[in-house]
Simulated scan of single mutants.
Amino acid sequence: MHPDVLTVLNINDPLTRAIEAGHVHDVFQKGGEELARIRREALQELVSSGMSNTQIGELLGMTRQRVSQLLKNGPAPERAFLGTDTVTVVVAGKVESDRPDPQPVVAQDDLVAYDHLKQLARTLSLDTTYEVVPSGGFVRLNRDNLVVLCGPRHSPNLREVIESDEAITFAKDKVGWHLVDNRTGQTRRSPMDEGEPRDFAYLARLPRPDGKGTFLYAAGIHAVGESGVINYLEQHIGEMYRTLKKKRFSAIVECEYDPESPTREIISSRLVTDYYYPAGA
């Protein structure tokens, strides 16, 4: 019997025992989902290497039919691109200064992006929660299963991490914010500034300051760009995970939105750069 179960079993107080049993059960349930995902991914890799379901079954002591079933059951391998447990999504908030009790308010574009990300996570058997960080606030980056949808101008410590990317830079001049592809020298300014319903956005997996992992980051030159990134993930997360796994990378995404839609729904999205990798990634 698992040591955690034995610990709960030996608790005398029934209330405490019930509470702890619930906690351990939840951990086991989530762990079981992740193990099912890991097994499915491993089986897919064996199939990709040229092995048949029959050969795999013989090695694992199961039938060919059972192998076929396991290849279809459990969370999709690509869910690991977002996380392995409840995903925390950080969005920026602007403080309403005209209220007696000013609170950070999230822009509609950010809420739309979060809603689409939440739906994507749900299809991958992941729950989500979100946090609002006021402009100029501190984002707690040293944690697992973190996605940040927040422009660099909103958080000083986030801006420092973004600046560690040598391939792509967020920059600002007299004209405004823009993205610079340092590999090609090309500058990407938002077509929105000229009245076109298009934007560019930065997508990256960046290092946590504590050096113990990474977090997924997306930010448009304008907020609608974040919805463009989520739209791209909705269509390509499977191939992105097969290509990138959990490696650090950065890229620029272009999106087009419907100017007649009250929520500026995304019509299309595409990569306009390669996936750039830092040295050693």
Score class of each variant (00 low, 15 high):
residue 128 T to Q: 11
residue 102 P to N: 09
residue 8 V to W: 12
residue 122 R to P: 03
residue 126 L to M: 10
residue 281 A to G: 01
residue 212 K to L: 12
residue 123 T to L: 13
residue 116 H to I: 03
residue 279 A to W: 01
residue 7 T to N: 14
residue 271 L to V: 10
residue 117 L to W: 08
residue 90 V to P: 07
residue 227 S to H: 04
residue 170 F to R: 03
residue 97 S to W: 15
residue 163 E to G: 04
residue 183 R to A: 13
residue 188 R to V: 04
residue 92 A to E: 13
residue 279 A to E: 10
residue 13 D to L: 03
residue 188 R to W: 15
residue 183 R to N: 13
residue 213 G to T: 10
residue 197 P to K: 07
residue 57 G to R: 02
residue 149 L to R: 10
residue 6 L to Y: 11
residue 243 T to H: 09
residue 70 L to F: 06
residue 118 K to V: 04
residue 135 S to V: 11
residue 198 R to M: 09
residue 241 Y to F: 14
residue 87 V to F: 04
residue 193 D to Y: 08
residue 165 D to C: 08
residue 175 V to D: 13
residue 192 M to F: 03
residue 134 P to M: 12
residue 276 Y to R: 02
residue 158 L to S: 13
residue 78 E to M: 02
residue 247 K to N: 12
residue 156 P to E: 06
residue 151 G to T: 00
residue 266 I to P: 07
residue 81 F to K: 01
residue 273 T to P: 05
residue 93 G to Y: 06
residue 4 D to M: 14
residue 38 I to W: 01
residue 36 A to R: 15
residue 276 Y to F: 13
residue 121 A to P: 06
residue 127 D to G: 12
residue 151 G to M: 00
residue 244 L to W: 03
residue 255 C to N: 08
residue 20 E to W: 06
residue 184 T to H: 02
residue 206 L to D: 07
residue 207 P to S: 12
residue 204 A to E: 06
residue 155 S to H: 10
residue 12 N to R: 12
residue 115 D to N: 14
residue 39 R to C: 03
residue 84 T to P: 00
residue 104 P to G: 09
residue 264 R to G: 01
residue 100 P to H: 08
residue 161 V to N: 06
residue 233 L to Y: 05
residue 264 R to H: 14
residue 5 V to N: 10
residue 187 T to Q: 03
